[in-house]
Design a protein around this nucleic acid. Structure first.
Lengths: 194, 194
DNA sequence: GCACGCATGTAATTGGTTACATGATTGC
DNA sequence: GCAATCATGTAACCAATTACATGCGTGC
């Protein structure tokens, strides 16, 4: 149930409307916890009935500005400190690797190098964010930077791994080819005798 | 729709029953694409009606042994080579980092060091698998090792990052404390004059 | 004969995605 | 007046989780 806590976390910084929250999700949380508009609005009504947030102000165009309640803050703190982060980790990119044996080594390498480039691109995007963002001296930016650093390190590791993996495929291919050659050589020695 | 392809991928290696597939999911795919029993059985019937797999043999206890069809292999190859790996990446562990500002720096550090230990534990588990697994000379094991290496590198990076992050919190705390001290010093110089 | 493992399935619920639907305000 | 942006919501669908339900076969 992390969407709930993502919303609480954003509202802990400042009151916001559903519309504002969507912008925040798209701007800063999209890569770690994407959410759709329906989800956010739905969660806000659920959180309101649960008493974890409240409508603090009504604005123009039916705007409802939500604020976190004391119960909401307690729940957020509880989640941060006492609940083990879990939830199954699905990783479609690595899943494919398991099955790369069904395509040719060349196709497998193409896939892996493609992955490397993808990782490089996300790394470049994150570096751009790091350079352009103004890191004011708030506590909040400390943790923003830490999260960003996570992305930077992970994408770097991913790129290195993918390039290494592509190399591995090459050497496995070579190994297999030399084995095959040796087998044919043996066969060649035997066949005239038959 | 990766569950579908995970099932196809496993059946590409060898025919299997739903029960067999569950064992394979729990043994080798649990960390990249966990699946429940209901999901696997459901997917198998869907795949059968779609003509991507077929019941190759009936065994005791109503056992149905499924085999991949030509259409299924084509679909698997297509997914591997022509479909961009995507699907939103959710990461509850990093999501929390964004909100660590709402708890004390000490609690934040505790959380981060906890994360480091978790990463170290998964790394240890993977190393154990690497040592105990018999890496036969099949092509399949080449890709199995590559996937394992991904896990090893990622958990190592994650551990390093978490330790670094905990340090960052320390220095941010120190920075803030010294600023506060300076502010109080300034105040101390001014207050007698007021 | 009984326990354990093999083997298959269904039902209810939650979380997430896509698409649709509607309307108010502001700035040009 | 009109376009862009602000703003909220619903409905249908798909994917995944949990829990339940059932029964056959093998080995002790």
């Amino acid at each position: 149930m992390s969407l709930r806590h993502a919303v609480l976390g954003l509202l802990a910084e400042a009151p916001a409307s559903g519309y504002d929250l969507m912008k925040l999700f798209n701007a800063s949380l999209s890569s770690v916890w994407p959410a759709t508009q329906s989800q956010v609005y739905g969660e806000l009504t659920k959180l309101t009935t649960a008493g974890l947030v409240e409508v603090a102000a009504h604005g123009p165009r039916g705007r409802k500005e939500y604020a976190i309640t004391d119960d909401g803050m307690a729940e957020l703190r509880h989640w941060l400190t006492e609940v083990e982060p879990s939830g199954p980790q699905r990783h479609a990119g690595v899943l494919r690797v398991f099955f790369l044996g069904v395509v040719t080594p060349l196709e497998a390498q193409t896939y892996l190098l493609h992955q490397a480039e993808r990782a490089a691109r996300t790394r470049a995007t994150l570096e751009h964010i790091e350079e352009t963002a103004e890191w004011d001296e708030e506590m909040i930016s400390v943790y923003g930077r830490i999260a960003l650093e996570y992305g930077l390190r992970m994408s770097a590791t991913q790129e290195e791994w993918a390039r290494w993996a592509a190399d591995e495929v090459t050497s496995a291919k070579a190994r297999k080819a030399s084995e095959l050659a040796r087998a044919q050589h043996e066969e060649g020695r035997q066949s005239p005798e038959e």
